[in-house]
């Protein structure tokens, strides 16, 4: 009799594969040895209590799923609290011009000859949100996440219309040939009469760029000996201050103003560009495990209504990278 003969018999008996002869043999063996009886009883217990099976793979899958769900919910909570914050911001934004209007009205009633006080109005789009506003002249401005526009509320539209910008905004300027419209940024000014265009000039970067959708604008780059630069629709002008370079490209303007509709389209962008944008939208920091990754090429489209996890999943699929979140920082790493 081979060493595992008893195990084979037990297996057959428990699973109902034993012949009557084999059952009788097992019974006989059990009678002969205490050890065999124990082996049978224990095996029987295992057989009975193995009522269902979850494989290792299933458990691992469930774990990843649960983890993803928790991450998603935690981010949703952070966003929710941000949204509340943005309501307060909106209230603050509204309160200021109203207070201003009332005080101006009162001042006017008291003394007709009072000088108009120079007062600035500032509008900032909270991180993760796009703000749209109408200036006193009817010009519509879309302000991208985290960007700010400032204008002098009292003097706006008296001779010229002037708006300062830090960040990115899209302008649909109301046509008024008498009063020139200026967008002022540290590196360049845009001079317009009536037209639609996108301007990107973050104060923390050394570059300025604008894309003209329709009409015409003139750029006043703030460097010596530079004449006004006239732009045609569909043109993109990039000014890199550090290199003193001005680049003019023919582009599809839609790509550069898609963020207005809560979408951002990337076409042949680097992973670094992408990380910068997502940092602005979601207010998180991105890090690369390997600095070389910053140069990876990427194309795709994101929606502002997506949450961070959706966006990361998209990158994961398209750019062949993996991510993990640690201490509110998103780490991107090469896929092995």
């Amino acid at each position: 009799m081979s060493e595992n003969h008893i195990d084979i018999l037990i297996g057959k008996a428990l699973s109902g594969n034993a012949t009557p002869g084999e059952l009788a043999e097992l019974k006989e063996l059990k009678k002969q040895s205490q050890e065999y009886t124990e082996a049978y009883t224990q095996s029987q217990k295992i057989w009975q209590h193995a009522e269902s099976w979850i494989s290792k793979g299933d458990i691992q899958q469930d774990k990843i799923k649960t983890q993803g769900e928790i991450n998603k919910n935690l981010f949703r909570q952070i966003r929710r609290s941000k949204r509340l914050l943005s309501i307060y911001k909106l209230a603050a934004i509204l309160a200021f011009p109203i207070a201003l209007a009332i005080s101006l009205l009162l001042m006017k009633q008291n003394q007709e000859d009072v000088l108009l006080v120079s007062t600035t109005t500032e509008i900032t789009a909270p991180t993760g949100h796009i703000a749209k506003c109408k200036l006193p002249d009817g010009t519509e401005v879309w302000i991208n996440s985290g960007s700010t526009i400032t204008y002098d509320a009292s003097g706006f539209g008296s001779d010229t219309r002037e708006v300062s910008l830090n960040g990115e905004a899209y302008f649909e300027v109301f046509k008024d040939r008498q009063k020139t419209f200026f967008v002022r940024t540290p590196l360049a000014d845009v001079k317009v009469t009536g037209t639609s265009f996108n301007v990107k000039a973050h104060s923390d970067s050394q570059s300025f760029e604008t894309v003209l959708s329709e009409g015409s604008v003139e750029l006043d780059l703030k460097r010596q000996g530079q004449e006004l630069l006239k732009m045609e629709p569909g043109e993109r002008v990039i000014y890199e201050k550090a290199q003193g370079k001005v680049l003019v490209q023919q582009v599809d303007p839609e790509l550069f103003s898609s963020w207005r509709n809560g979408e951002i389209i990337f076409k042949d962008a680097t992973l670094n560009d992408l990380a910068n944008e997502l940092e602005r939208i979601y207010g998180v920091r991105f890090r690369f495990e390997d600095p070389n990754m910053a140069g990876y090429r990427f194309r795709g489209m994101f929606s502002y209504s997506n949450n961070l996890i959706d966006a990361l999943e998209k990158i994961k699929v398209t750019a062949q990278v993996d991510y993990y979140i640690e201490n509110k920082e998103v780490w991107l790493k090469k896929r092995n």
Binding site: N4, D7, I8, I10, G11, K12, L14, S15, A39, Q42, S43, K45, I46, W47
Partner: peptide
Amino acid sequence: VEMQMGIALKKMREKLSDIQ
């Protein structure tokens, strides 16, 4: 199949005996 079933039960018994 017979052999594998026998081995499976034996191995599981060894794993579980101390716990029980």
